[in-house]
């Protein structure tokens, strides 16, 4: 056989570099900043911009594993409920005299367990889509939170716990640092490791991945478990920030999180997208919300904005590549 010489140098084209979705996000981000600056005099201020992150970064922790889930061509709509359940259990334990340190660990454990159960159900019952599995666990998890706490709210945590949501390291909010650390870790996991490569493979072609020796089931379980764990992390920051918890906290978080991921250019058909896009989208939506909040736009109007943004984000690539949209795919 005559060997043909192939290059192993990656071709780098300028056009390809600038045609990436992330640049679109950067432009949008600038647009949001410009709009906010024009709308409110208070916006363009370092302290303000810095502290705004404290108000929107809590759910960003879930965005990180959700990127993995959507690249797998799955979805998890139970994350809001996992936040509620782990937060409620933590608060309930503390109220019953368990030390806060222990309650905090239990909170993380509960979230992890919830995510693991999601993953296990999805893997064991392949006939069921992740939509229907996480839809039912979404109701179940929040249901347990209601059983535990009825409609009360529990609070009065120790002082040190407030530090999570309100504290600074030097002049930088603790939550921002925590998010940055997690974002780097998840980014490396997705883009630099064999695990991440396999996640992309499964999302693009699960059958071929399996035939190539990728342990599809194991990876799915790990990813959903991570989503549970990060939901619990969100629960910690959110509970600390609010100072109390109740069964209906984090309602609708799944929408925000999915909207951020999809806006970040991660395709719901699976196998495509990058972590940096989702992170840009976190700040884009975060500052958009914050800015609109400054000029007293109601929470309800924000619902509409986020909903439309989600639809917009999924429509744009479909319209560009007309006719290649996922057809006949089960939910």
């Amino acid at each position: 056989m005559e060997p043909r010489v192939l290059t192993s140098k990656k071709p780098l084209t300028l056009k390809g570099f600038f045609l990436q979705w992330e640049w679109m996000l950067v432009l949008l981000f600038i647009a949001v900043i410009v709009m906010n600056v024009n709308l409110s005099d208070y916006f363009w201020d370092y302290n303000n911009l810095r502290d705004a992150t404290m108000s929107f970064l809590d759910k960003a922790f879930i965005v990180l594993p959700m990127v993995f889930i959507i690249i797998l061509a799955d979805i998890d709509i139970s994350v809001g409920s996992i936040v509620a359940l782990s937060s409620v259990i933590m608060a309930d334990l503390y109220a019953h005299g368990v030390p806060m340190e222990l309650a905090l660990i239990v909170c993380l454990a509960v979230g992890t367990l919830c995510g693991y159960i999601n993953g296990l159900l999805i893997v064991k019952f392949k006939e069921l889509s992740s939509v229907i599995v996480t839809l039912s666990t979404m109701i179940i998890y929040r249901g347990i939170a209601y059983i535990l706490l009825k409609d009360q709210s529990v609070g009065k945590f120790p002082k040190w716990f407030n530090y999570l949501g309100w504290g600074y390291v030097g002049s930088i909010p603790f939550i921002l640092i925590a998010f940055a650390v997690f974002a780097v870790l998840f980014g490396i996991l997705l883009h630099k490791t064999t695990f991440g490569r396999k996640v992309y493979a499964i999302g693009s072609n699960p059958t071929a991945s399996r035939y190539s020796g990728v342990q599809v089931d194991r990876i799915k379980i790990i990813v959903f478990t991570l989503a549970g764990l990060m939901s619990a992390v969100t629960a910690l920051f959110l509970t600390s920030r609010m100072g109390s918890t109740r069964p209906n906290i984090a309602t609708g978080y799944e929408l925000d999180v999915i909207a951020m991921v999809v806006l970040g250019g991660i395709s719901t058909a699976g196998g495509k997208g990058r972590m940096i896009g989702a992170i840009l989208a976190v700040f884009l939506i975060g500052y958009l919300r914050y800015g609109l909040g400054l000029i007293n736009i109601s929470a309800q109007t924000l619902l509409i904005v986020i909903g439309l943004l989600l639809i917009f984000a999924v429509s744009v690539p479909k319209l560009k590549w007309k006719g290649t949209g996922a057809k006949g795919k089960a939910v």
């Binding site: 072609n205 059958t207 071929a208 991945s209 035939y211 196998g271």
Partner: peptide, 21 residues
């Protein structure tokens, strides 16, 4: 096409998928 390859991927990535470790 369905079982052997990830069609959206490059030749190189496809080749190394079974032995990434």
């Amino acid at each position: 096409q369905k079982q052997g390859l990830v069609l959206q991927w490059s030749i190189g990535r496809n080749i190394t998928l079974p032995s990434l470790e």
